[in-house]
Amino acid sequence: MIDLHLIGIGTGNPDHLTGEARRAITQADLILVPHKPGKSDLADLRTRIIAEVCDDALIALFDMPVRDDTLPYLTRVDAWHDEIARIWAATMAAHPEAQKIALLVWGDPSLYDSTLRIAARLDPAPRLHVVAGITSIQALTAAHAIPLNTLNAPVTISTGRRLRDHGWPDGCETLVVMLDADCTFQSLDGDGFDIWWGAYLGMPEQILEAGRLSDASVRIIARRAEARAAHGWIMDTYLLRRRA
């Protein structure tokens, strides 16, 4: 039976690797690295992290499939995950000698990441090992030097899609928004919220903005567009908090 290690690697900074992550990379017989069209620097960053830990690792690059945007959202994501699982299986089958296989996962495999759901599609099922990583939320709050929650208060973690479709969650004081390509915070009352935003968290390219939403939103939109044009991709996260 194959042992599949899903290794959280943080948000792009090699210093985010835990000792457990480094051991898992070193001990892997094969490391799968996805390549996305137009985002080769993400694959390059993964390979640099691997090389820093283990200079003789066997790496297998595979091309990520493209989602079919003509399908409803959940249907196309489900079909996309099926195709990724087939590509994983074919890539692993091409290396039958590899028994310990690793995948490097941005942030942590448990938070708004589908690697575990894709792994569940593999047949035969491998033995799964998950190595926790630093999430973009931790990197965001550390970069801004703020606590995630206010005193004795809960936090909601959601997506730009849900904020767009359902509005501000009832009873929510602090909302962390991930996967928001449309800057959905524009739909909120800018004077009623503070925002802490970050992109390329933990990387040398890291950019940050914070302040009252009515003031910061214009700066965020402009800097986000500029950074995306410069790099060809962007990963960003933000925290919103109701003003007293």
Rank of each mutant, 00 (worst) to 15 (best):
S217Y: 02
A24D: 03
D182A: 13
G133K: 03
A227E: 02
I50M: 02
L240H: 01
L201Q: 07
A89H: 15
A120G: 15
L239D: 00
A79R: 00
G38N: 05
V105G: 04
I59S: 06
W106F: 05
R23T: 11
A120E: 14
W88Y: 12
G12W: 01
A119G: 05
M1G: 07
W197N: 04
I49F: 02
W196K: 00
A142G: 12
D56I: 11
K100T: 14
A21K: 01
A94Y: 00
H95C: 06
L71R: 06
G8S: 04
I234E: 14
A142E: 11
R48I: 11
W197G: 07
G19F: 03
T156P: 11
D236K: 08
I118C: 01
D108C: 02
A93G: 10
W88T: 11
T237A: 09
D68M: 09
G12K: 01
L201E: 04
A142Y: 10
G19A: 13
P34M: 15
N149R: 12
D44L: 00
C54W: 07
T75A: 14
A142C: 15
A143F: 05
D191R: 10
I84G: 04
A145Q: 10
Q27W: 06
A229V: 09
R46A: 15
E209M: 08
G38M: 03
L111A: 04
Y73W: 10
D165S: 13
I49L: 08
R223Q: 13
M92K: 10
E173I: 13
A119I: 09
M92E: 12
D189S: 10
W197F: 09
P124Y: 13
D63L: 13
I9Q: 01
